[in-house]
Design a protein around this nucleic acid. Structure first.
Lengths: 236, 236
DNA sequence: CTAATAGTGTCTATTAGACAGTATGTT
DNA sequence: AACATACTGTCTAATAGACACTATTAG
């Protein structure tokens, strides 16, 4: 399994005798908090569908927490890295691959799961929700979560993920993972406002964001008001 | 093990039949990156012992990586939370309890350990290194790590921890966990400079830090120059 | 006195907040 | 023209960077 080279014969024997079954078994899973912002798909109408950020949830078909909603996720295979598990799970639920993800936190309380001891590494995944072609999952607005029965400690995980997202949106470039390729500054500002939960002043926002975006030369049209320049993320 | 209540008889039977041994076994460990800054213990001489931050390492007595240095850590017990494992491990190596810690990252590459598949949750722990009464561990200056053989992927973990520490020291109050109860502003500035790896301008530093500290009314003496006010962390 | 570090005052550059105003499309 | 949103100009407040200056001890 490993590239590690034993240093001597004694060590080689030690490693061969070593049996993982001798140790108490704790399972490890990966859970994904997938965030997205949805827009109406109509070309000439770019207003947000729901003025809130949404989370991807899956209805559980089996016990425990049957019929509850849970984060997409699953057991880590013995020959699978945490990121591989994440990728596989997201592909199964959304059909999408290569979604931007980063590790959030690992939850290890002893009574997280009634079946057995399970430690879960939670990841935050961000995507432009318009692109999604969901299979078994649904989008739930973050402020409507209390209308759903959420399985395990997944509500806590979502809350923690929201905190992290709020913190990172201002000092990193992760917003762009939730945007389409091309967007207006107002659309970008809307996403900031949704995540931060507060209104921002347009001049200040434009000043700050200007360094991170570049003009495509295109304009919106038929919006019922002055058209807007269309930008994309600036990459060095 | 859990406070979870089965919803019906069918679920109760399901849970009783469920056997953790049916799933492939991945072990989980906790490793601690313990950071500290050492000062000379002499009362009237407050200069830093070594002008660098130090990490706590343990010499491995067994294979694999026998005689290499590793982060203090160990296997998570079946009835033990990640934090409990951390606390137990640190107590064994340093004799100290209640050390400030926060989760860093969970490392899950498949070939981290030659014995078996091991996923490790790494924590950052911070303490005033002067207080330590080490048992089996040694302090290694961060810039002297390449003189030691480091086991597993622990060098990567330490690097990652250093990055996190650098990021957090400016926008949180974690420095104070590495300071004694009472300190001068210069001593505090020295710790910032050690962590950030750059010199800071005293007036700017004082302006910013003033909000977080309060005067004890005491002064240093016999320092060979103008005495310094002694501060402590301000708590609301 | 000198050496050494503690601590302050202040000027300037940069950035954030606020708000009024102008611009340009659709209807 | 009226409306709606896009976009800009500018004043002010707060903050960060730089550096010169003063203060106070030991020896």
């Amino acid at each position: 399994m490993s590239k590690y080279k034993p240093s001597c014969e004694e060590e080689k024997i030690f490693l061969e005798k070593y049996d993982a079954k001798d140790y108490p078994s704790i399972a490890i899973t990966v859970d994904a908090v997938v965030f997205g912002v949805r827009r109406d798909a109509t070309e000439n109408y770019r207003k947000l569908d729901k003025q809130t950020i949404q989370v991807l949830l899956v209805k559980r078909e089996e016990y425990p927490y049957k019929n509850y909603y849970a984060l997409p996720g699953g057991f880590v295979g013995i020959e699978e890295s945490l990121e591989d598990t994440l990728e596989r799970t997201l592909k199964n639920k959304t059909g999408l691959t290569g979604i931007y993800s980063e590790q959030l936190y690992t939850f290890g309380a002893i009574d997280r799961d009634p079946r057995m001891r399970i430690v879960s590494s939670a990841y935050i995944s961000l995507l432009d929700a318009n692109k999604t072609n969901l299979k078994d999952a649904i989008w739930v607005p973050i402020d409507a979560l209390d209308k759903y029965d959420i399985a395990f400690d997944h509500k806590d995980i979502i809350d923690e993920a929201m905190n992290r997202l709020r913190g990172k949106i201002v000092e990193s470039d992760i917003v762009f993972h939730m945007m389409p390729e091309e967007f207006t500054i107002s659309e970008l500002q809307e996403v900031y406002e949704i995540v931060l939960g507060e209104k921002l002043l347009a001049p200040a926002f434009r000043r700050v964001i200007a360094k991170k975006i570049e003009d495509t030369g295109k304009m919106t049209n038929n919006a019922g008001h002055r058209p807007s320049r269309i930008f994309r993320q600036k990459k060095d």
